[in-house]
Nucleic acid binder design. Sequence first.
RNA 1: AGACUUGUCGCCAAGCGGUAAGGCACAGGGUUUUGAUCCCUGCAUUCCUAGGUUCGAAUCCUAGCAGGUCUGCCA
Length: 536
Amino acid sequence: MEEPKEQFKNFIQEFIEEDLQDTSKLATRFPPEPNGHLHIGHAKSINLNYSLAKQYGGTFNLRFDDTNPAKESMEYVESIIEDVKWLGADYDDRLFFASDYFDKLFEYAIVLIKKELAFVCDLSPEEMQNYRGTFTESGVESPYRNRSIEENLKLFLEMKDGKYKDGEKTLRAKIDMTSPNISMRDPVIYRISHTNHYRTENKWCIYPMYDYAHPLEDAIEGITHSLCSIEFENNRPLYNWFVENVGFENKPRQIEFAKMQISNTIMGKRYLKKMVDDGLVSGWDDPRLPTIKGLRRRGYTAEIIKEFCNNTGISKSDSVIDISLLFHFARNTLKKQVPSIMAVIDPIKVVITNYPENEIQSLRIENNSEVDMGIRTVSFGKELYIESQDFMENPPKKFRRLSLGTEVRLKGAYFIKCNEVIKDENGKVIQLNCTYDALTLSGSGFNARKVKGTIHWVAAGAIESTLNFYENLTDENGNFNKESIRTVKALVETSIENFECNRFQFIRHGYFVKDNVNYTKDNPVYNCIVNLKSSY
RNA sequence: AGACUUGUCGCCAAGCGGUAAGGCACAGGGUUUUGAUCCCUGCAUUCCUAGGUUCGAAUCCUAGCAGGUCUGCCA
């Protein structure tokens, strides 16, 4: 990934430059809990942390914050590693696990106990809630708050040794029950959970809480700037309290910024999980999902995601980015690197009545994408297909495509004129009988008359493909919209076989990618990844 | 209600006391063998509101208003 553009130099960079006399000492991290798959919101954080480190010549760590064994698994670890690598965030050998720090974290808790800054509490969850107070009333100190250091040490060791059941005791920080900031009201730092951890298995039955573990993990790794989302703002004093009181020399700075939301897009982990579990989508890599795996399968490249992340800005204000911006960066990136070919999604048969039977011509067509993909050869014959939308029997005034009696150019081929419309018993147009003018071949220099428009076409015998259109999952009210899923067949020009790339622009239909999962030569499947704007 | 925090165009977002960048979207014009792409042009006398300080305020002060977060032994 490249460094962010200069105009997006923001408050985070100001902190960095203010705090570090030598900015190459910058150390950032991406600290996911392995309890789900990454989505584009995570990509933004990954990109930020990684590109900042890269920009200043600092370091970037990937750390799994696996302090809650109930939700975590190796499957998620592997998935996250795969996605982080695919996104291009190179963490080198700097892969860490909070669970590798469990011994240290335990020792630090003992330090706190010895400093009389932590105590073992016997309050039940309900009691603790009552003692905590409310937004306006201060809390009440736990009756166990003044146990001696020796007793706390003994009890804490017993907790560790499995003498107590889940929920029976906790280790709490001794801070201030009257603080207006509720996260400072003697927060729990260790809880008992006789749960198998996917890495440490049954070695531990007590696990550190996020609020305690996270700042210390950062401090241990020498992180200088700990970026997190805005909901941790209230926890910052606590973050600093732990680093300070455990006695770390390295004091990371926590900086919060707003999570990215995208319009009409479901990003919440639990909602994504529900859709996967309920079978509304085919899996975490369903191309309709904003997961990294989904986007990848949908045809997005890491570069598109990077561009999107780099150009949407970082701030503290709640923001919902319009999904059209994502589409814009997809188009903008791909148009520079993919060939455009002709494909007909909703075909009408065209018969060129004055064209010789059984004569197949090879026409050389220039690519009209930005990249020079050379000149390709496409067969042209008596029967072909055009887009049904490109024909109107009774066209409005400004219609520039084919209608009865008018002449248009077939892209890269000849002028044709429609003379007869054939309909089925329901009045649906099923065939157009046209004539062509052999003098008008593309590239022949013919200019005796002009034509209002050019349309794409595909010769009979082209590859038939299935196009899966994936649209937004929700309607304008945010409700899940099953109707938005549809599969469409399309005819694709045969020359597609000659292209080695797997992404194409289908003129006026958008960008498509061969779906690696389902693709076979006999049954090619393309996913529509972005619809072009179409104004007709 | 208490603490913390945010409020600049339809959506993002620069701006940090010197007279409102940029992108998306939108609208108009031009080029075009596709109504795409490309190229122009337009798009906040005004920065949540009201006062105040100042030669000068989106930027500083005061008071309001609106949104977000926090009362898990989740992260």
